[in-house]
Nucleic acid binder design. Structure first.
Length: 826
DNA sequence: GGATAGCTGTTACC
DNA sequence: ACCGGTAACAGCTATCC
């Protein structure tokens, strides 16, 4: 049989002691197909130098006899081959040791204690990784495949019969097909329950949305009105059965939830156990399986054959740093990505809900799934390209952090370089690495506070990756000592050396950057979502690879390379600043890879020409580009001291577009009132070039605050709880607010954004935490606190630029004195 | 007992 | 535990006189 096929989900099973890959995907006619295949399973033994061929033969002989009997498996070494390979860039002779079961590779490695063997590697990769590398049968690419149909066969224990797929094929040949479109079938789901703690309440309803299919299953019936999309069941147990039935009927490639690893799926599992309902969601009738990630992290829920996606996790790793949303709630994220939001509905306890409340509740529940599906569809190009670029299945890349994804990318590309993979660090090694001394980071220029006109900003494109590539900084090029033609870099207390010959890490990174450039160029010519996603995938991987080398969990951990990169970065930015200033410009600020400077009457053409000249002298792939020309910019002093504050500035470009960095305006743990006032003042001053209008604006707001006319919503302070309540040494206001919430039996856990406001108390209290009230608690806001701790701090440094001491006038009891003073000064 | 340096904690920038 | 260091700042806490 011959069909076009796209692999989506990978997993494996054991049959007669061997591992077989089981790949679920679709044919081009939309049929669900299961592919069974096998691959070589092996590890590497790196030999010591200068072994005689006789000696090597005898080792091969010895290794060939290794047998391992564990957990009822009889695994043996099948064959041993001698190869010329590379390990960390060095030529080595290595034995490729083939085994029958990948799970026993570790045990085989333990038996390779011969003194002629220097290192054992490649035994700590997952089966799927082994398989994809070995067979080059990569996720989410189209293949023309041929093989034997197993539908009614008894082979592999009759897998073709019991698996719920249209066709089951034992793979024989594959051929990659380029440029064929993919349209995955996704089903979004969302549950509502009367208690937030997993399994402690009842599931009231489940919504399911896929294409035109929209359904809410519930046992909470209304008396009269039943919307079309609602389906009644008798009780919670039947609700769960119905859910399984629908998932099986729709048979999606992806089952998508929002925070579903941490809430929906575990909740469903807990309730199903309670009612003895079997959740046969897997294509082999298996139930979802949960595995724990890191301690404190949420678990991951896996369903065989259907890819369970918790879209929140992917958003967190791939997007959150580029997003405007202050929380990653479904509501905010949907607003930003979809321009849609959750249905307005105040959840009440079921016991006090009325007929119309229930109807609203159904709609609310349904819409959450609509949004979740919308997010999946919006982010699908990115999931697709991440998976393709990295070479691992979507299930994994959507959950793994960027560092793990960088590593997967490396592992999948090692073969081109003949490299044997480095091993994962042991726990002991990780402990050592975590306690290493920090290395010095990037350079930040000390700005002079003020309002400036005509500013240009240059920045280095992909600074870290370009330094790593241009100077070849990696574990495989790090030398023990100085060598001929090596590069020496001072990293504080010592000097480290790197070989000039390009290593695989730098080569891979270079490829990422070049591909990114290519797709970005194509994107400009003809924009489309896939190209954009691909360009983004390459960019994110390239940027994360710098942090990767300094990360203690990395296989290719190399803090020397990170330290060298920061050292070189400081040199380059400082030299560039010097050159800019030598050319009659004046640098006013710089952070890591960007430089802001005054044009000093020079034209844009002159500046661009100057940029070209700077670029012509940069080594390797390093590149300086124009970020933009700006009409005005503002830098303020630090709260304490007269120096300019770093990482805080605001710019306005020629079109009036404003860019604000670091100010309270962009910090979510300040109340909206302070943020809005500051934002308004910054905008006004940047537009006008002076402070006059802002002063009267501030005066009005002060009046409003003193007259208690400010909405409570604008006074709420939001701070994230970063750990569990008991772990806090310092009891700050948000910790008190969280404790209050706990007393009211509101759900509180690490990661929550805690909301509170500061209220007046009868007695004069000294500590802020003694005045904390929850948003729905009655109370009068503390005028003094909001003026002195929120409003004044947000604006006083800005007015100080104009030598105005706003503080003393705001504190003035008589408002008209302030107004008079403003009039006099205008 | 008030001032203050220093520490804890959060959030931002790149 | 799941990418790094730099920096500002609030508010608590220990310590000083």
């Amino acid at each position: 049989m011959k069909i076009d096929f796209i692999p989506i989900d990978y997993d494996y099973f054991d049959f007669e002691g061997r591992n077989y890959a089981r790949i679920i995907g679709r044919s081009d006619s939309g049929k669900r197909v299961c592919i069974i295949d096998e691959c070589d399973v092996y590890l590497w033994a790196i030999l010591k130098n200068d072994l005689s061929s006789k000696k090597i033969d005898s080792i091969i002989d010895e290794i060939s006899k290794i047998k391992v009997d564990v957990k009822g498996r009889h695994t043996k070494v099948e064959k041993v081959e001698l190869h010329n390979k590379k390990f960390l860039g060095k030529e080595v002779k290595a034995l490729k040791i083939f085994a029958t079961n990948y799970k026993d590779l570790h045990d085989i490695a333990d038996k390779l204690g011969m003194k002629e063997i220097e290192k054992r590697r490649g035994y700590d990769l997952g089966f799927t990784t082994h398989y994809i590398i070995g067979k080059k049968f990569e996720p989410l690419n189209w293949y023309e495949i041929s093989g034997e149909v197993l539908d009614n066969s008894e082979e592999f224990g009759g897998i073709g019969k019991y698996l719920d797929v249209d066709i089951c094929i034992k793979l024989e040949n594959i051929k990659k097909i380029e440029d064929k479109k993919i349209k995955p079938k996704a089903l979004a789901y969302d549950i509502e329950s009367d208690e937030i703690k997993i399994g402690e309440g009842e599931i009231l309803m489940i919504s399911l949305v896929s294409g035109d299919f929209r359904k809410v299953i519930t046992w909470k019936k209304t008396k009269k009105t039943k919307p079309d999309f609602v389906e009644y069941v008798e009780d919670e147990a039947e609700l769960l059965e119905k859910f399984v039935e629908y998932v099986r009927k729709i048979s999606p490639d992806f089952l998508v939830g929002y925070f579903s690893d941490g809430f929906d799926l575990p909740y469903i599992k807990a309730r199903a156990e309670k009612h003895n309902v079997r959740l046969s969601l897997g294509l082999d009738d298996s139930q979802p399986r949960f595995s724990r990630g890191a301690v404190g992290e949420t678990q991951t829920g896996k369903i065989k054959g259907i890819v369970h996606i918790d879209i929140l996790k992917f958003i967190r790793t791939a997007y959150s740093q580029y997003m405007q949303s202050e929380t990653l709630s479904l509501n905010e994220v949907s607003k930003e990505f979809l321009g849609d939001k959750k249905k307005e509905f105040k959840i009440k306890h079921p016991s006090i809900m009325e007929e119309k409340d229930w109807v609203n509740y159904y709609e609310y529940n349904l819409h959450d799934s609509v949004l979740t599906l919308g997010l999946f569809e919006k982010l699908w190009p990115d999931l697709l390209e991440f998976s393709r670029v990295i070479g691992e299945p979507v299930f994994d890349i959507s959950r793994n952090g960027m560092s793990k994804n960088v590593e997967s990318y490396i592992i999948h590309n090692l073969e081109k370089f003949g490299e044997i993979p480095e091993k994962r660090p042991s726990y002991g090694e990780i402990e050592l690495r975590r306690h290493r001394e920090k290395y010095t980071g990037a350079f930040v220029f000390q700005p002079n506070p003020g309002l400036y006109e005509d500013i240009a900003v240059f920045d280095f494109t992909s600074y870290w990756p370009s330094i790593i590539v241009s100077f070849n900084l990696s574990l495989s090029t790090l030398l023990n000592k100085k060598e001929k033609n090596s590069l020496g870099v001072d990293i504080g207390n010592k000097k480290v050396f790197f070989g000039k010959k390009s290593g695989f890490f730098a080569e891979m990174l270079k490829e990422l950057i070049e591909k990114r450039k290519k797709f970005k160029k194509e994107l400009k010519k003809k924009p489309d979502a896939i190209k954009n996603a691909r360009s983004n995938a390459f960019k994110l991987l390239a940027n994360a690879s710098y942090g990767y080398q300094g990360f203690f969990g990395a296989r290719y951990y190399c803090p020397e390379a990170s330290a060298a990169a920061t050292s070189i970065s400081r040199d380059f930015i400082k030299k560039t600043i010097e050159k800019i200033d030598e050319d009659r410009y004046k640098t006013i600020y710089s952070d890591t890879d960007s430089i802001a400077f005054l044009m000093n009457k020079k034209t844009e053409e002159q500046t661009l020409k100057f940029l070209k000249k700077l670029n012509s002298k940069l080594p390797g792939i390093m590149e300086l580009e124009l970020e933009g020309f700006f009409k005005r910019g503002m830098w303020v002093t630090k709260r304490s001291g007269e120096f300019g504050a770093k990482k805080k500035y605001a710019l306005i470009d020629k079109k009036g577009k404003i860019k604000i960095r670091g100010f309270e305006t962009v910090r979510r743990n300040w109340c909206n009132l302070a943020r809005h006032i500051q934002n308004h003042v910054i905008k006004q001053i940047l537009e006008d070039g002076n402070e006059k209008k802002s002063l009267s604006y501030v005066s009005e707001i002060i009046k409003k605050i003193k007259e208690r006319k400010v909405d409570r919503d604008d006074l709420i302070i939001r701070t994230q709880l970063k750990k569990s309540l008991s772990e806090y040494k310092a009891i700050s206001p948000h910790v008190i607010a969280a404790k209050k919430m706990e007393e009211k039996e509101m759900p509180v856990s690490s990661g929550n954004l805690i909301e509170y406001y500061i209220a007046e108390t009868k007695e004069k209290k000294k500590l802020v935490r003694e005045k904390v009230k929850l948003p729905d608690e009655e109370g009068k806001y503390d005028i003094e606190y909001y003026l002195e701790r929120q409003i004044i701090p947000a604006i006083e440094n800005i007015f100080q630029i104009f030598k105005i001491d706003i503080n003393s006038f705001i504190k003035e009891k008589k408002q008209n004195r302030l107004d008079k003073w403003i009039q006099k000064n205008q």
